[in-house]
Every structure is written in structure tokens, then in C-alpha cells.
């Protein structure tokens, strides 16, 4: 099973990932509506691409009262069914990683869907700071590994890993 991996030492904060993601999600360039965000920490010269970890027991999915969020069979991504979502925002406050947000224009929530197995953020990343790879010998940590070191409070398991 593949997952997003991040090497934050390579990220240049060029925001190509945000452009690609927003295009994928909205058909326009609009970083404010991107599911991935390259956070910028200028004082320590660190830039961190950050998106959904696709956790197994996903807070967003489990809290959705209308089961609008489901597991994609192929990628194990947690995907939002826009037709079902009523915009109640419960998922947005339930996910402690904040990786699902409400779009006031559509009245629905949006999150990373791994682009059906071909994440566009990975495709456009000019420095290979974001990778989509199988478990292998690569030293690049999974995006979720950052989360796993986050806190005992919200320990997460990645889908089928």
C-alpha cells in the first residue's frame, strides 16, 4: 500500500503542490482550497507539506453522520462523497490534524483523496519533497510518521500498514 511521504529538508515552499491540488479539487488554481498545504516557518527555514494522513480509524469518516466519507478501495484514501455531504462540519472539528476543511462556496467539506492513486502534488513537486511510495527501504518518512510522533493523545494507524 502506498502512502504520501515527505522529506521536509527538500521542500522549497514553492506551492506547486497547492496549485496542483486545488486544480484537482476545484478546476482552478486556488491554494486556499487546496487539501495540501506547504507550511512556511521562515525563522527556522523549514517548509512542511501537510495533508491528510489517511488514518485507518479516520476521525472524519467515523464522525460523519451521513457516512459521506468512505474508504477508497484502491488507495485506502478517505474520500468525501460530495453528493452526500450536507456540510454539517462535524468532521472538520473532529479531525485533530485539521486536514479536512469546509468550503463556504460549495457548502461541502474537502480533503486529500490521493487523486485516485496518482497524487498530483507528488507529480508536480519539483524537488521530490513529496513522494507516493510503497513501504520500502527509502528513508523518506511517511507523512503520517510526522503525525505519529505528534502525540500520544491522538495516535493513529495508517490504513492497512
Amino acid at each position: 500500500m502506498k502512502s504520501l511521504r515527505v522529506d521536509i529538508s527538500k521542500c522549497t515552499a514553492c506551492k506547486q503542490c497547492e496549485l496542483a491540488c486545488s486544480w484537482h479539487l476545484t478546476g482552478q488554481f486556488n491554494p486556499a482550497k487546496s487539501a495540501i498545504k506547504a507550511f512556511v516557518f521562515d525563522a527556522i527555514a523549514r517548509y512542511v507539506p501537510y495533508a491528510c494522513f489517511q488514518c485507518d480509524e479516520a476521525w472524519c469518516m467515523n464522525s460523519c453522520p451521513i457516512s459521506a466519507i468512505s474508504v477508497d478501495v484502491k488507495t485506502k484514501a478517505k474520500i468525501v462523497d460530495k453528493n452526500s455531504c450536507v456540510g454539517c462540519k462535524v468532521c472538520t472539528i473532529a479531525c485533530p490534524f485539521g486536514t479536512i476543511s469546509f468550503d463556504s462556496v460549495t457548502g461541502k467539506v474537502y480533503k486529500c483523496d490521493l487523486c485516485d492513486g496518482d497524487p498530483s502534488c507528488v507529480t508536480v513537486c519539483p524537488t521530490d519533497a513529496i513522494l507516493y511510495k510503497d513501504v520500502d527501504t527509502a528513508s523518506t518518512p511517511k507523512m503520517s510518521e510526522w503525525a505519529l510522533r505528534l502525540t500520544d493523545a491522538y495516535s493513529i494507524k495508517e490504513a492497512n500498514l
Binding site: T12, A13, C14, K15, Q16, L19, D42, A45, R46, Y47, P126, T127
Partner: peptide
């Protein structure tokens, strides 16, 4: 040097930090 920082949408990232 501690990092390269790109401008928006720049795939070169000549910016020095």
C-alpha cells in the same frame, strides 16, 4: 545556507535562506 526558498510556483528555487 540553511535552505532554498522558492517564490510562488517557482521550480528553480534560487532563493537563499
Amino acid at each position: 545556507l540553511v535552505a532554498n526558498k522558492a517564490c510562488f510556483a517557482c521550480t528553480i528555487a534560487c532563493g537563499r535562506v
